[in-house]
Design a binder for these strands. Structure first.
Lengths: 236, 236
DNA sequence: CGTGTATTTTGAACGAGATTCAAATAATGA
DNA sequence: TCATTATTTGAATCTCGTTCAAAATACACG
């Protein structure tokens, strides 16, 4: 009998409803003011029902972040599969990742919050591993590029494994994006156009890793042409 | 009459007491469980008195982070003033910053939390600008190195100002450190020895920026010798 | 169908803790 | 000394997140 399956499907549909609504509430009124009771009411369910899905508010936030990562992941992997040199593809990931962050400002803020010890530690282990699992796909895509670059001789391993080699570009991208998140921080340091700077420094790092073909960084016009090309072609 | 000044001094002393105690409580029992009433009681003051100093819990956290930055700043600036090439000094900052983070794990977690939209937005504007002001000293130290490197011809500007050029190394360091903070994240990605990787990628980035003298990255022993030298000399 | 049992949903009650504020206390100055 | 002003106090308030006993619903079996 399909009763169990139907139940299962309904349960999942409800979870989706909760998450969609939570996302809307956060967009409309901010992460700060999200209330569990309010969310339940908005979905015409009782508070307790919400807690059948999420063991705590933090749990919900981790689930939201996970779903966002999954959505982002599609776009990300599409860019990773772009028909181009490994160097171009690696750079494309930086551009795509950052563009996604700019397009969804709330997403980055949520991720930043979720990875905080305070939140991360109070989410359920299940949700935490689900999030880590969701990261596997994009991480795998990056690693595949690194592996191919190694195989093709575009990149030397320097004695590190592929994951280790991708940490730099990844960390750089994450670091600059999170500084960009903190309102007023970069302004105050006298930095603007962080986007262009992220692209510039990413290319510099790839050059420094000896990732062939090296590109000339002296000309900002060339750099922005690269970025435009990625935006035009990598997501086509 | 010095009455006003004495009052002022006593007020500041009390603030210091609150902050020292808060730090101890956080160290002993975690950021998560810090309670305002508890903190006040621990200092033999009423809750309301605590609120004369800090407009909210978030405000207190930002103040704590600020003080930590100030403390870190000394060490940081000492390393920046190391008698060595601009390239060596720039790299030294990465090492020192990361070492400080490793030595004070709670510090990094606090910073990460404080820069979260949720916390940052609920701190008072005064505390926020105080924190930004505290960042000026280390930021200035980094910028000075970049400026000297430009003047000495160790580094080309590529059309960017000094602050812009320092964003990459800074962002890389911050990004990798914050990934390191998130328990289990790097393990799960199959990455260990993130310290060495931070050093490696930092050097790669500096090479990629064309920061003279370039160093050879093929040999991990050379890299770790650099790190050791920094630890030995830069803070002497 | 009716009826007993298991499952799910409900939302009021509870608890934890941040924040406030009227009253008490202390400092100041005439 | 006493009126006035500033500071301190901590119980009361308020805001949620979370729980759980009761109600509602679904299900199984005679």
């Amino acid at each position: 009998m399909g009763t169990r399956e139907r139940k299962q499907r309904e349960f999942e549909a409800r979870e989706t409803l909760f998450m969609d609504t939570a996302r809307r509430l956060i967009r409309e009124e901010g992460l700060l003011t999200l209330q569990m009771a309010r969310l339940a009411r908005e979905c015409d369910y009782a508070t307790g029902t919400l807690y059948q899905h999420f063991s705590s508010k933090e749990d919900l936030l981790v689930a939201l972040a996970t779903r966002r990562i999954e959505e982002h992941s599609d776009e990300f992997c599409r860019a990773a599969a772009w028909q181009a040199s490994t160097r171009e593809r690696m750079f494309a990931l930086t551009v795509v990742d950052h563009d996604f962050g700019q397009r969804h400002p709330g997403y980055m803020r949520l991720l930043q919050y979720v990875f905080t010890e305070v939140v991360w530690a109070s989410a359920s282990p299940g949700r935490r591993t689900a999030l880590q699992k969701a990261l596997e796909q994009p991480a795998g895509a990056v690693r595949a590029i690194v592996e191919q670059a190694l195989a093709d001789g575009d990149l030397k391993s320097h004695g590190f494994n592929p994951q280790a080699l991708m940490l730099g570009p990844w960390g750089l991208c994450a670091g600059i994006q999170s500084m960009q998140q903190t309102r007023g921080m970069l302004d105050h340091l006298g930095i603007d156009a962080a986007d262009e700077l992220l692209h510039f420094h990413s290319q510099a790092l790839l050059n420094g890793l000896g990732w062939q073909p090296l590109i000339d960084l002296n000309d900002r016009a060339t750099l922005s042409a690269w970025v435009e090309r990625v935006r035009r072609e990598a997501l086509a």
